[in-house]
Amino acid sequence: MENVKTEPEKIAGIDREIADTSKDHIPGWGIDADPENDPTYPMKHRTGADYERLNYEKPPQQPVKIEILHSVERPGITRVFGTSTPPSGVSGMIRRWAYKYSEATTAHWMGLIFADRVNAVEGIVDDFKKGTIPNLFKERGWSAEWKYNRQGFIRSAVTGLLVTTAVIAFCTSKRK
């Protein structure tokens, strides 16, 4: 048992050594130190307001002019809400379905993520309908990649090209 490593009585404390060094060079050091800031420090300023439940003074209701989906975990919509991008198209149908489930379910969140992917395709179709051809090079900010990571950019472009060529070659050769 001689080569079993036992721990020394005292460990040379690098941690405390560093912690005890002077902090004079750090502006504001310790200025907000508060011994009472223990785990239960009142980040929440306890006023008991949560026990008043929903009987609080409410702001006026924002008029509803567009479709607003709301969580089934509340009785209705909130007094204000955003008016960006109401649900539309196929993604909108998926979103309406997803909002039937609570925020505790996978159906709700995975449904919404799926709707987002469908929505991105709808966005492209919509662009074409309006005569806009999405400029992927621009939208993905690739000019910055060209500027700051030229080698990497060329490397991935060449790899992409080779892979595409190989796939095309493979598919066409099989057909013969």
Partner: peptide, 12 residues
């Protein structure tokens, strides 16, 4: 609790 209809788990 009055700024986000879509989720109760997050604020607006």
């Amino acid at each position: 609790h009055e700024s986000n209809p879509e989720a109760t788990a997050v604020g607006g």
